[in-house]
Nucleic acid binder design. Structure first.
Lengths: 350, 350
DNA sequence: TTGTATGCGTTATCAA
DNA sequence: TTGATAACGCATACAA
C-alpha cells in the first residue's frame, strides 16, 4: 500500500529545479558523469560530454550551490564586509578586489555593516555560513568574539584600508596616522594656527582615530597644543558634513582650516561654507581624505589625501588567494598615501 | 582492519565547524531537538532549550546555510542585481530595499552586472543557485532566455526603476520617457533650440532609450526636428561625461543645452565646460538625471530629474515580500519623477 | 572512461 | 516533549 518513496516528477506542474539526476536521466548516463562534465570535463569522453552538455542546456540546469558546497567543502566564494555602500569611498577598491577575484574564478559576496560592529559580526557569520572561503575586512576594530570566531573556523581573512605596526594581523593598506599627519603639516605650512576636524565616529573606527592622532602629531611637532584642536564627530554623509561645519564655526577660536575625515564630509563642509558666504580657501580652508571622484568635481577642488584604492583592492585579493591556496602569508603590506594639493587649501587669513 | 567509517572528531587539530550533531552530543539531546531549539523554540521545553543554547554558544555553532537551504527549500534570502555599484545611482534605492527586507527577517545578496546582459544572466543564475527566494531587477531589457529561466524556476521577481505601460511584467518605478520629456520641455521653455544628449549605451538599456524618446517627444511637440538632436553614447562615469561634452561641442550646430543621462555624466560635463572656459548656464546649459547627492554639491548645482529612489526600493521590497508569501500581485506601481530646477539650466545665449 | 555508493549538515515526518 | 530517520542535490573514492 505504501507508495514507493521516490521523488515525484513529471506530473506536478510547479517546475522544480532540474537536478543532476534529471540531466543524467535525459542523457542516459550516471549522475557522476554529469558531475564530471561540469567540474572536470577533461576526464570524460568527447562524445558523452557533448550529449550531457546538450541536456544541461535543454533543461536549464544550474548546480545547486548549497548542495555543492556541502559535498565539496569549498565554494570558490569570498566575502567582503565594508562599512558602507552609500558613498563611493570603498567602491573603487572593491571593484579592483572583485576584478582580481573574477580573474581567478571566484565569486564575491558583499555585505555592508553601516559602521556597526555587532552588525558586522552578524554579516561575518552569515557569509561564513554561506560558505565564504575567505574574507576581506576593513580596519582592525572589532570585538574579540569576532576574531575568536574567525580563528576557530580557520577562515583566512585580511584587514584592508589600514597599516598599523602595532597589529599583528595580516593587513594591506596605508598608515592612516602618517597620512593625515602629512596633510596636517601641509595645512600648518600655510600658516594656519587654529584647526578643526570633522571626523567620523571614533569608537569602533581605528582609521578615524589614527587620522585624529596624525593631526595631533603634526601640531605637537610644530609646538601647537593638540588639545586646542576642535573636533566634531558625525556620520559620513554630505549633510552631516555641512552641519558639522556649522557647529565648528561657532567654536572659539574659530578654526581657519577644517580637516575632514573624508571627501564626502568635506563636500558637505564646502556646501555649508558657501551657504554662509565664506569663500574657500580665502576665508576658510577645507581638506578631504580619500581622493574619490567628488574631490575633483566640487569647487574649489579638494586638497585631500590620495588613497591607493585599486592597489589595496587588488592586493587584498592576491593575499587572500594565496592564503586560500595554503601558502602562508606572513607579511602585511604597506602602501603609500600621498597628499594631493588642489584648491581648497590656502593660506590662513591674516 | 577497516577503520569505522565515522566522522573523525577531536584529535584533528584543524578546527572543523561545529555541526548540529556536535551541539546535540554536548547537550545530550538529539539533533532534531537542537534544530527545533533554533527554528521553533516554543515547542521545546524550557529546560532542555537552555541546555542546548548553552552548548550552541560554547561551541560557536552557526547553522550551515547550504545544508539548511537543501533541507528546508527556502533561504529567506532575496537577491538584487543592479547595473553598477561604482556610483551612487542605485545606492539609496538599494538601501531602502534592504532596510525593508531586514525588517522582515530576510537577507539581501547584491550583485552588479556592469550593464552587461550576459553578465546579468550569470548573476541571476548564481543568485538562484544560492537559493535566492526572489529577485530585484533593474529595467526590462534582458534576453528571452533570462526570462524563460525565471519563469521555469518560478522565481518571483520585480522590475524596478521603470514604469512602462507596454510591458506586462510587474514593475515599480517611474516613466522614464515622461520624466525626461518634462525636463526637456523645461529646457525648451528657456529658449534653447539646439539640444545635445549625453546618454548611456542605448542597447540593452530601456531606461536610456526611453529618456531619449522623451526628449524627442518634447521637440516634436514644439515643432523642432527631433533628428537634429545631437547624441553621444558613453559609459556612466565622470570622465566619460567630460569627454562626451568635448565631442558635442564640436558638432554643428553647437548645442546650447546638453541633457545628460544621469547626474554623474552631468558632473563630468560641468567639469569639461569649466575647463573650456564656458560659463554654466550663461554660455551653455547642462542638466542631469536622478538627483543623487552630487547634483547638489557641484556648482552650479544641477537642474535634474528627481527620482523616487527610496520609495522604489521600499516598494519593491514590499511587492517581492507579498509575492514570496504567495499573494498574487497583479499591478505594477507607477511613481512620480519630478523636475527640480537648480542653477545649471539657464536661458539660451542670444 | 563510466557507474555505484556514501556522506556532507539540515529540516521535517513519523513514532514514541 | 523528544528521538529516529528519510530526504535534499551534489562530489568523490572506489570499483568495474
Amino acid at each position: 500500500m505504501n507508495a514507493p518513496s521516490q521523488r515525484n516528477r513529471g506530473q506536478d506542474k510547479a517546475a522544480e529545479s532540474p537536478t543532476l539526476e534529471d540531466v543524467a536521466e535525459r542523457s542516459g548516463v550516471s549522475t557522476a558523469t554529469v558531475s564530471r562534465c561540469l567540474n572536470n570535463p577533461s576526464v570524460v569522453s568527447e562524445k558523452t560530454r557533448a550529449r550531457v552538455m546538450e541536456a544541461v542546456k535543454a533543461l536549464g540546469y544550474a548546480p545547486n550551490f548549497g548542495a555543492r558546497a556541502l559535498a565539496a567543502k569549498r565554494t570558490n566564494t569570498f566575502g567582503a564586509i565594508i562599512p558602507t555602500m552609500e558613498n563611493a569611498i570603498f567602491a573603487r577598491g572593491l571593484q579592483a578586489f572583485q576584478e582580481e577575484l573574477e580573474r581567478n574564478g571566484i565569486t564575491l559576496l558583499v555585505a555592508s555593516s553601516s559602521y556597526r560592529p555587532e552588525l558586522e559580526d552578524k554579516q561575518i557569520q552569515s557569509l561564513v555560513a554561506r560558505g565564504a572561503d575567505a574574507l576581506l575586512l576593513i580596519g582592525h576594530d572589532r570585538t574579540p568574539d569576532t576574531y575568536d570566531f574567525l580563528e576557530k573556523r580557520q577562515i583566512p581573512y585580511v584587514i584592508a584600508w589600514v597599516h598599523d605596526d602595532n597589529e599583528a594581523r595580516i593587513s594591506i593598506g596605508f598608515d592612516n596616522r602618517k597620512a593625515m599627519k602629512l596633510l596636517a603639516e601641509r595645512v600648518l605650512d600655510h600658516g594656519h594656527q587654529s584647526l578643526g576636524l570633522i571626523s567620523a565616529q571614533l569608537e569602533g573606527n581605528d582609521r578615524a582615530r589614527h587620522r585624529l592622532e596624525g593631526i595631533r602629531d603634526a601640531m605637537k611637532e610644530r609646538g601647537l597644543d593638540p588639545s586646542k584642536l576642535q573636533i566634531t564627530e558625525t556620520q559620513y554623509t554630505i549633510s552631516c558634513g555641512a552641519e558639522a561645519l556649522a557647529t565648528l564655526l561657532h567654536s572659539d577660536p574659530k578654526p581657519t582650516a577644517v580637516l575632514c575625515g573624508n571627501d564626502v564630509l568635506a563636500a558637505g563642509a564646502l556646501l555649508e561654507a558657501r551657504k554662509q558666504g565664506l569663500r574657500v580657501p580665502q576665508d576658510i580652508s577645507i581638506t578631504g581624505f580619500d581622493d574619490i571622484e567628488i574631490a575633483e568635481i566640487v569647487s574649489p577642488a579638494l586638497t585631500t589625501v590620495h588613497v591607493p584604492h585599486s592597489n589595496m583592492g587588488a592586493g587584498a585579493a592576491k593575499l587572500l588567494l594565496a592564503m586560500r591556496n595554503g601558502e602562508d602569508v606572513e607579511q602585511s603590506v604597506e602602501l603609500e598615501a600621498t597628499v594631493v594639493e588642489r584648491d581648497s587649501l590656502g593660506n590662513a587669513p591674516t
